[in-house]
């Protein structure tokens, strides 16, 4: 669930408030968005994609709150990583959309499923 907005990075553009499908954030009085309804967060990571300032951290835990240290998150290099790897905005040229590789992945998944029958009984080819 969303656990952190790094105040120094946030430009108060309001994008996260607008795009969050679960309406987790509210505009704050002093500018910064407020994590108003974290318990509604569906851990979809969409707010991170739309934050051009890379100020948002969504913790991977979707069923419970975890404590997150700002310094650790800043040091980890995780801020903005998803936006980068998804080839958004300025990353479009560096990380082109390679979703199509799924085709090869699917094919190999089917092969993997077909091969070691002995170890994986009952394979039916379900996706």
């Amino acid at each position: 669930m969303i656990e952190l907005i790094v105040a120094e990075r946030c430009t108060d553009c309001g994008a996260c408030i607008e795009v969050c499908p679960a309406n987790v954030l509210d505009p704050g009085r002093d500018g910064l968005p407020i994590l108003a309804r974290v318990e509604d967060c569906q851990t979809c990571f969409m707010c991170e994609l739309y934050c051009r300032a890379d100020a948002i951290y969504v913790a991977p835990d979707c069923d419970r709150r975890v404590s997150v240290s700002k310094d650790e998150v800043l040091a980890s290099g995780r801020l903005g990583q998803y936006r980068k790897h998804s080839g958004w905005d300025e990353w479009a040229e560096h990380f082109p959309n390679e979703q199509w590789l799924m085709e090869a992945v699917f094919r190999r998944a089917a092969e993997a499923a077909a091969q070691p029958k002995a170890r994986k009984p009952g394979v039916t080819g379900q996706k």
Binding site: F45, Y82, M102, V105
Partner: peptide
């Protein structure tokens, strides 16, 4: 059971699959 090339394709095609692990 994923070989190196498959691993690379998995990462490139579905970045969000790895978020829970990387984090």
């Amino acid at each position: 059971q994923a070989q190196a090339e498959t691993q690379r394709h998995m990462r490139a095609s579905q970045p969000n699959f790895f978020l829970p692990f990387d984090r």
